[in-house]
Design a binder for these strands. Sequence first.
DNA 1: CTGGTAGCTATTTTT
DNA 2: TAGCTACCAG
Length: 733
Amino acid sequence: MNLDQFNDRQKEAILATEGPLLILAGAGSGKTTVVVNKIAYILEQSLARPYQILAITFTNKAANELKDRVEGLIGDGAEGMWIGTFHSVCMKILRRNISLLGYASDFLIYDSADQKTLIKRCLKELGMDEKTFPPKSMLAEISNAKDNLMEPDVFLAAYNGDFRMTKVGELYKLYQKRLFEANALDFDDIIILTVKLFSLDAEVLEFYQNKFRYVFVDEYQDTNNAQYLLTSQLAGKYRNICVVGDDDQSIYKFRGANINNILDFEKEFDQAKVIKLEQNYRSTQNILNAANCVIANNAGRKGKELWTSNGAGDKILLFEADNEYEEADYIGKTIEKLVKVDGMRYCDCAILYRTNVQSRVLETTLSGFGIPYRVLAGLRFYDRKEIKDMLAYLRLVFNPNDNLSLMRVVNEPSRKIGVTTVEKVAAAAAGRDISMFAAMEIADTIPELAKVTEKLLTFTKLIREIQTDTDQTQPSKIIEAVYKRSGYMDMLLSEDSVENQTRIENIQEFILSAEEYEKSSEEPTLFEFLENTALIADVDNYDTEADSVVLMTLHSAKGLEFPAVFLCGLEEGLFPSQRSMYSEEEIEEERRLCYVGITRAKKRLTLSYAMRRSMYGGSVYSKASRFLDEIPQQYVDIVEADRSPKTEVGGRKKAKSQSDLFQEIFERKSAGVRTEPVSYDFKAGDMVVHKKFGTGMILSVTPAGGDVKLEIVFDEVGTKSLMGSFARLKKAQ
DNA sequence: CTGGTAGCTATTTTT
DNA sequence: TAGCTACCAG
């Protein structure tokens, strides 16, 4: 291996193979390169065989990247290495050994939606009110307890005498019991049951401790307690544990990450070595200086100072907008300029914000400018209703005793089996100690179900038929059968709406993904397919490169980089968020988030905030974010707002900018004239997209009392007359 | 059982 | 504002 390509710190990190090692890798310091080469070095020096190496990441994306790059470096020599997410690694171990804990080895995984359904059922069963015990916070409490390895009985004992927590403990106990009965694990269980397995069975633990001579953990600042325990168990024998992370980028406290894992690494692992990677290969020095200055205000950190040999670069721009429309307008204009004048591409630009709601105004403005964009947000593929429904059917086909899945789809599409009936079935099943499906199959012998026997049997027969008629090694065929024979397809076809069209497309994509799975797996089974989909959150949507601007939250931006970054909404109350302002710890987390945002930028960084912003219907006035004050002025140019009524954009005259429109509406409002926010400018001949009606062309635009009346001929539904402010039209691309 | 509406709440997200 | 849920009437 040619070590000359690395800087001294990197070299040191690669060569320090033995003993506990913390690589404190600043943003853009080449940490993946170091890990990849370190693994290659270990193999090259014959310090270990591939199967003796374990590398754990958080996301599938990171795992795949690591795998690909190691393979790229050493080719087939990588065969047998364990590179995977915490969850996939634990799954591998649990599938082999979970019987020691009383679960059957073909357990299923309950995702967050399943958890929510289950917790709601448990709440109902215990007569607990969802208002006083919100499902979401109940799950958070349970997750927290699990992270601290507290089982229900321990939890109950610990909170003995505390009325509320005793209730929570009872709920936790029932929840866990139901999971066990369903032979299901939630995401937390996957980790903590592995830890439990290791602590109960020395033999199993030893097996893995002997196996893994070298253990790597990526994004160590994001680990929770259970994950910390797991890694220290695994590395317990050889103690060759190399963790990589950046305490300044710890932004997931809200989902259990414990920054102390990285801060106290040397305390936990005796004689640990710490190597800081501070040379940055991504950004300009101005950007790094700003980042360094902001993060320096945090107390709970190891302390790092990023530097680069890239040169100072452009100054950071700061735009102080009157309102969010003006802010969006400026961003749009600037992107336009970057593309038309500076030769950048749209995909070089990213707009980052604290909360997802902020994307809306940006979106309308960008499409007004004709700028192509993508929003990375929210609904992941496997979270879509139609996909969840298909998965529930599949799980039912795999295991009819899965009550949760049964309840999800028994009346989807409508089979006139409503809540009352389902409750009766549940009661009958519980009384007989059989599954709901089994109860339905013998409905004719259950008096309470006499009236609905027919309907129930139609459903069970459907599932049985699909079981017998399809090939279990071809999940795609099973999905197709479910889709067509359950009536789901007819349901979607019965009403011709845009939503249904998307649903149909999604299901088709789902079938495709199943086919892909069949091709990639040596021995495809329905079971394995279900397991894969449970652990893969997304059919990764970001890599496919269209030339468009990306919009996303700061959290999603972690790990990415862009030549031009727009960091917007830098206002007290929004960023840092209102809810973080009562604790210094939380403010520090927000500050880390800001640090993450700044360090995404390679060349250009534009910061902005709006003095006034509409939130929750009302108008909110805010001060500039404290993080802006923390950036020394010498790195920043303040941009004056151009508030002239007409703006030239790309040589084309734009009728009215968003902010002007906003201004007008605002003035009319204060004058007592009731108006709705007007959509942007449309003229006859424009092609537009309506949420429900699809694509169409504007025939005429008539002003009508502060609004406009639009006559539009839609491809699908013919001519409609709509008010501009209500139509929520988008320009067709 | 289903469809409609009144009322409430409101970061960040991976597995 | 908007999206979701709980509750009620048919």
